[in-house]
Amino acid sequence: MTTYQAQGEAEFGDYVALLKPRVMSLVVFTAFVGLVVAPGGMHPLVAFCAVLFIAIGGGASGALNMWYDADIDAVMRRTRARPIPAGRVSGAEALGLGLALSGLSVMMLGLAANWFAAGFLAFTIFFYAVVYTMWLKRSTPQNIVIGGAAGAFPPMIGWACATGGISLESLLMFALIFFWTPPHFWALALFMKEDYHEAGVPMLTVTHGRDVTRRHIFAYTLVLAPFAIWLGLTPVGGPVYLGVAVALNALFIWRGWQVMRRSDAQSNADGHRAEKSFFKLSLYYLFAHFAALLVQHWVAA
């Protein structure tokens, strides 16, 4: 409207957007489930604070990611409207917010829960902001495979808040998200290819071609299934979780098979229908597994 409107007069929502609220919702949910199903009770307020500060730590790493990736975000259509490329928030502000919230969330998680969980959160922020964003994302097509670990840590942190340590159950919750991430993002890359091309991010679709990506998606659905089932055989699992896991993994493998069997010509002809529905299924897949853990916990109690 006016010339000086663009000069970084941000509203509150722009700072909230820096924390990637949609990613945060996944962090909140998985950390909450990890915390609730862990043995040993926590005071509800302490549990609430723990999940809140894990979420803020995740948001802080999102702000650091947006600070570093502003150049990529400005090129990709999906991310062009983010606060920094849109000019509403300066890069330095995002960096400051990210660093301040990182320190605050780690300190408060240590005070609210325990210092093992706080150290774990600090490592997760480091892993996402430095290992994934600064190092792997631009250098290797395996970027999301290894970077996916950052998204897989929250349930382990939640578990660590309640128990002060790591166990087989928390490692299997990690594996569930870790092996789920690649097929999830590669399906997205299959129907958003132009964006990654333009930004020069080495997605598997760009470096090794789309047919290789289809085969990788199917392969990961096969790797993922045993870990999902194994989690059901641990003390946090049970008939409810196992029923959900068996049904969803069979469906996931079947849909992954369909994605692999398609050619690009078929995919373009129907507007990437199978790829989009696989992507949607992957969202339900992860949500349903963690929801089933929660239900299983309440049923057993």
Partner: peptide
């Protein structure tokens, strides 16, 4: 100005 509304949203949010 519309700018003041943005500033207020920031201040109230904080």
């Amino acid at each position: 100005h519309e700018l003041h509304a943005r500033r207020r949203s920031r201040n109230l949010g904080l």
